Simulated assay, not measured.
Amino acid sequence: MIPLQMLALRWHWPVLHVAPLWFHSLLLRLFDVRVIERGNPPGTAATLVVANHVSWLDIPVIGSLHPLSFIAKSEIEGWPVIGLFARLQRSVFIDRQRKKATAEVNDALAHRLVKGEVIVLFAEGTTGDGNRLLPFRSSLVGAAQAALMHDSVDQVFLQPLAIAYTRRDGLPVTRRERPFIAWYGDMELAPHLKFFLEGHPLDVTVTWGEPIPFNGNRKEATAAAEAAVRNALKAA
């Protein structure tokens, strides 16, 4: 699919939004991952999706459900294979070492939101062990504020998204098992992939929360999104 997606990006073919859905769905089938979707995905309004982050697997899980792009740290752009896939997904990269990077990314995201694109922000800023939710960072939610400054946009929404890996081999995932599913800290990717290639079916519950109208206060909106994700994780 890579040549097709490259041509689609070059010539702006509509398939550029569809090919990633095919790719992620195939990847999940290969890893025997079943996605259980709850709630309603974003509509046509300008929407910044605010999600928790557990594993590299979050990307194909979310990417298989809806045409969207991700915000990623700049280091990923240079990674072999994964960096290429991230670029083909039209990810927005941010260099956290540069103080001006956040403002630049917010401006780029605002233009994408204005065009009706859905962007996913992993608001914790890193992956966790799956057993607890890390505090959400509000800095990149400023993109919603920047989008509101455009004359063509009347309303911008933050939509909470909770990702919970709930069952393995048909049995509930325990607190002890969740860190093996998560990919965080200094974990090596290759041994972690082996865990998923052992042929044990995995269920993941994805819960779309109710869109939160952004009122200009990014800290308040981020806190509301964090609370919604936390509640959805407990329910899952």
Score class of each variant (00 low, 15 high):
Pro3Tyr: 10
Pro3Ser: 13
Met6Arg: 13
Met6Phe: 07
Trp11Pro: 03
Pro14Ile: 02
Val15His: 03
Ala19Ile: 14
Phe23Tyr: 11
His24Met: 00
Ser25Tyr: 07
Ser25Met: 03
Arg29Ala: 08
Asp32Gln: 12
Asp32Asn: 06
Val33Glu: 05
Arg34Met: 03
Val35Asn: 11
Asn40Ile: 05
Pro41Asp: 07
Gly43Phe: 03
Leu48Gly: 12
Ala51Arg: 09
Asn52Glu: 14
His53Lys: 13
His53Thr: 07
Asp58Arg: 01
Ser64Phe: 03
His66Lys: 13
Phe70Gln: 14
Ile71Trp: 06
Ile71Pro: 07
Ala72Asn: 11
Gly78Trp: 07
Trp79Lys: 06
Phe85Met: 13
Arg90Ser: 09
Ser91Lys: 04
Ser91Asn: 09
Ser91Glu: 08
Phe93Lys: 14
Asp95Met: 13
Arg98Phe: 01
Arg98Asp: 14
Lys99Asn: 13
Ala101Ile: 06
Asn106Ser: 12
Asp107Gln: 15
Ala110Lys: 05
Arg112Tyr: 02
Val118Asp: 10
Leu121Glu: 10
Ala123Gly: 08
Gly125Gln: 07
Thr127Gln: 11
Thr127His: 07
Thr127Ser: 15
Asp129Leu: 01
Gly130Glu: 01
Leu134Glu: 09
Ser138Asn: 06
Ser138Leu: 12
Ser138Lys: 14
Leu140Thr: 01
Ala144Glu: 08
Leu148Met: 15
Asp151Ser: 15
Ser152Trp: 00
Asp154Asn: 15
Phe157Lys: 09
Gln159Glu: 09
Ile163Asp: 11
Ala164Pro: 04
Thr166Ile: 03
Arg167His: 15
Val173Trp: 06
Thr174Ala: 14
Arg176Phe: 06
Asp186Trp: 04
Glu188Trp: 00
Phe195Asp: 15
Phe195Met: 04
Leu197Glu: 07
Glu198Cys: 08
His200Ser: 11
Val204Thr: 12
Thr207Met: 10
Pro211Lys: 00
Pro213Asp: 05
Asn215Pro: 02
Asn215Ile: 10
Glu220Trp: 01
Thr222His: 09
Thr222Met: 12
Ala224Gly: 04
Ala225Asp: 03
Glu226Trp: 01
Val229Thr: 12
Ala232Ile: 00
Leu233Val: 02
